[in-house]
């Protein structure tokens, strides 16, 4: 039953395959952005269903707060130890609080929170939406005259964009506190001095940068999660749901890393913020 078509001939097989893959990837990115555009359009079209939004906000908050706090705390502890040990040879270990708080506020707070949520919330969004797709629940929504993007995507997108900054504030405080616990307990660092240092170096600008990053990450997680959920074929079945869900977590991690680079470049390099 082997009947090689001209495209799959060995001479140009690889090139064809690569061209196909690149084309496929590009068209997927295009589709994802189309969904994002439609979502943003729908956000501004009344009515906004607050009960749906509330449900998502609570879901994300309850599901993630403890993990975000623990992750932030341990990241802060590690930073405290690293900072102290690295700074000590230069006799500037007194700056460890500054080191911890700046790293946590500008970079690690939003990042850790986004990582936790892409695994927990992004993946669960994909699992839920793709299950609804294969069990024809999305078709049922459509046939009852409800726009699935407005009904399903908008509340999840808004909830992620709102909760990520809020959770980032929690993880940031947990991180700074983690650094405090580490240096005070392990290196007998002066706790009052640590707090003083943190207060001195915590600028409104840095917090704003942190929140801008967090909001962007939240949007990215929801967009990837919803897109991966919706783009599954109705014929995909349970296996398709599994593949889409793991795919979603991986893609949103990569998206967050790339987005973080782009945002750092824009905020610190182009706009020259500090």
């Amino acid at each position: 039953m082997h009947n090689p078509s001209p495209e799959s001939a060995p001479s140009n097989g690889l090139a064809f395959l690569m061209k196909n893959r690149v084309y496929h990837a590009l068209s997927e990115i295009g589709d994802a952005f189309r969904l994002l555009a439609e979502t943003i359009f729908q956000i501004f079209r009344p009515p906004l269903q607050f009960d749906l939004l509330m449900k998502q906000l609570l879901f994300i908050g309850f599901n993630s707060l403890s993990v975000v706090l623990v992750s932030g705390f341990f990241t802060g502890m590690v930073l405290g130890i690293q900072g102290y040990v690295q700074l000590k040879p230069y006799a500037v270990e007194g700056s460890v609080a500054q080191f911890v708080s700046i790293s946590v506020v500008k970079e690690l707070g939003p990042m850790i929170t986004a990582f936790v949520l892409s695994g927990r919330i992004g993946a669960s969004i994909t699992a839920e939406l793709s299950t609804m797709k294969v069990t024809e629940q999305i078709d049922a929504l459509e046939v009852m005259g409800t726009n699935p993007v407005k009904y399903l995507v908008v509340p999840r997108f808004l909830a992620c964009s709102i909760m990520l900054p809020i959770l980032t504030i929690f993880s940031t405080f947990a991180g700074i506190f983690g650094g405090y616990v580490a240096v005070v307990s392990l290196f007998s660092f002066n706790g009052d001095f640590y707090i003083l240092q943190v207060q001195k170096h915590l600028y409104v600008g840095s917090v704003l940068i942190s929140l801008i990053k967090a909001t962007s990450f939240g949007m990215a997680i929801a967009a990837v999660g919803c897109y991966k959920g919706f783009s599954i074929s109705t014929a995909g079945g349970a296996e398709g749901v599994g593949t889409a869900t793991t795919g979603s977590a991986v893609i949103s991690l990569v998206t967050i890393l790339v987005l973080d680079f782009v945002l750092n470049h824009i905020l610190f390099n182009i706009l020259g913020l500090k």
Binding site: T135, E136, Q137, A140
Partner: peptide, 9 residues
């Protein structure tokens, strides 16, 4: 729908 397609949430 053939599968009923009820919203399971």
């Amino acid at each position: 729908f053939q599968s009923a397609a009820l919203f399971d949430s």
